[in-house]
Nucleic acid binder design. Structure first.
Lengths: 334, 334
DNA sequence: CTGTTAGCGCGTTCAT
DNA sequence: ATGAACGCGCTAACAG
């Protein structure tokens, strides 16, 4: 019996089983190649005894490809928590024989990022279009990444895109407020988040409102009592008070409703409020919160299936267009 | 000028620059070996033109190690959102010359998981002790992983541990309630989360309470109006009412306070309430919420520095013990 | 001092 | 069921 080596390789397994490395390889991952049951079990036993784990580097170096889908961790918190999307995405990818790997560096982007991502030679990369610039995509392709899928807007011509528009929740919510006849709107613009994030959402609200001739008061604020109270206090005067507020997300919506109540204003009678994200608390607190949100499981599914399809030489999953539409949940607050 | 190859390798760069592959390698990553400025810039130019990205597989295959810290994505949502920990951890690891990679499969654990993680031959692995069983750790070590750091409890003898005990927030919160003289406690046990998670927290509360001769009513519930209303309705009778409630987390605490108010009970006069997590909303809604929470940035820092130290042949960061202590934030609700 | 040759690391696969 | 070559980057040893 051979001594147990520190880092067992397929050669060690072969030695222990008394066969060649080729045989080991065939037994472990090529069901096609016929190997006698006898040898087969000897190899498996040896592998188990040595706690052999194949070296992914050597394997993908030889194969020239891997089953890795690389996902750079998003830079900013997006509407549905990163947790959720990631969790669902992983499950969907696993079903399709792919392994998700999240790349830690949140700041990597463009060419710099592409170099870092390309080093891992993944089969596919899914990333936000803002980080997936044209040269970045070109570099990834040249490095042998078979599928580069971009998420977000704008849709660009140089790579397939899942047009997941975070500002869409703002548009949908605003359209609802307009449908209810509100013409004097306000929009919270949180300072805590990366500025561009809140800013884009605000602009989407403004555009949607202006198309109907409605006005939008901009309210910069934090998720603190003082900040919101300052904003709300001037709304005690009915002349300066908006009909309805888009609160950016459900946390701010809940905080805003609370602050309005403390100021003596009623929701939705005096001011309607709508959020985004469909957090459970919104369904519970009174008045219950109307909200616009993405359907995370559906989005994860179409992303995963699109990646699978791209690897198989097909196009995007046709369900993408409908899956990325935000849903409106109407409750008491607006 | 050479034609532009599809997957440029160091050989292509060498050809284009008119030098050997060895020279390319020296220029790109061995500052020690002297190369003339002339050649040097030719190589760099060639690399840039070809958008050359080295192959991490080939590199780590040759080197026998990598600078990758592999972190299997946690199975369950833990007290501080996975997002937060991950974000901070990445920053801290980057500072120390390490690259964080998150492994997608949430279900992988034990020997099965270890095999999957070992394939990537990371320099280090950080994972929860529940998934890092003794054989799993052994397999990782045998595969050449230099540092295996476990998080969570219990502390085990076969690997270094960061004793990050999620139930500690429950203990600290409960101790506070006891200090305030409350002896009839209740504890919410959410059904939504993986059962074991809520269960463990509950048991910690019971143990802490019993040590002082206090009782704990168990309240299984969801984050819905009906569920909480059902639990709270019987508390209208002062005889059956607890003095104080540990609500598992801030969302449930907020929901509970809301439900208590609707039932006509005052917080903290009739019932005190305390949560966990220190969510911003808790500081804003009235009554403001007392809460116990982990200091995420500190935890991330000691994990990263411990990994670095383990790789350098030293022991855990001595600050670990203090960093994992939960903090108590006292406000109006308890 | 500058640059090249040669061989390694590990798993896969073709041809024998 | 096996020997041998291959994929790609690193580096010790060596030559000019």
């Amino acid at each position: 019996m051979t001594a147990v080596p520190p880092h067992p390789t397929s050669a060690d397994v072969a030695r222990r089983a008394g066969v060649s490395r080729a045989t080991v390889s065939y037994v472990l991952n090529n069901a096609d190649h016929a190997i006698s049951e006898e040898t087969r079990s000897r190899v498996l036993a040896a592998a188990r005894e040595l706690q052999y784990a194949p070296n992914a580097s050597a394997r993908s170096l030889r194969a020239g490809r891997s089953n890795i889908v690389l996902v750079p961790v998003p830079e900013a918190p997006s509407t549905p928590g990163v947790d959720t999307v990631i969790g669902h995405l992983d499950g969907e990818l696993t079903k399709r024989g792919l392994r998700m790997l999240l790349h830690g560096d949140r700041t990597a982007a463009g060419i710099q990022g592409a170099r870092a991502w390309a080093e891992l030679r993944p089969a596919a990369v899914y990333l936000n279009v803002r980080r997936g610039t044209r040269p970045a995509v070109a570099l990834l392709r040249r490095a042998g990444v078979q599928a580069v899928l971009l998420g977000g807007v704008p849709t660009v011509p140089y790579a397939p895109c899942v047009p997941l528009d975070e500002t869409a929740v703002g548009r949908v919510a605003t359209r609802h407020l307009l449908d209810r006849g509100h013409r004097r709107l306000a929009c919270l613009v949180p300072r805590g988040l990366p500025a561009a994030f809140a800013e884009r959402r605000f602009r989407a609200v403004v555009e949607t409102a202006q198309a109907e001739g409605a006005s939008v008061e901009r309210v910069d604020c934090d998720l603190t009592t003082d900040s919101l109270a300052a904003a709300v206090s001037r709304w005690r005067d009915p002349v300066r008070r908006p009909d309805a507020v888009y609160a950016h997300n459900d946390e701010f919506a809940i905080a805003l409703i609370h602050t309005l109540h403390e100021t003596g204003l009623d929701v939705p009678r005096d001011v309607a409020v709508i959020g985004s994200g469909n957090r459970p608390l919104g369904a519970l607190l009174r008045p219950t919160l109307s909200t616009a949100h993405f359907v995370v499981p559906d989005i994860a599914r179409v992303i995963a299936s699109s990646i699978r399809r791209l690897l198989d030489g097909q196009g995007l999953d046709p369900d993408v267009a409908t899956a990325v539409q935000p849903r409106l949940v109407l409750r008491e607050s607006a």
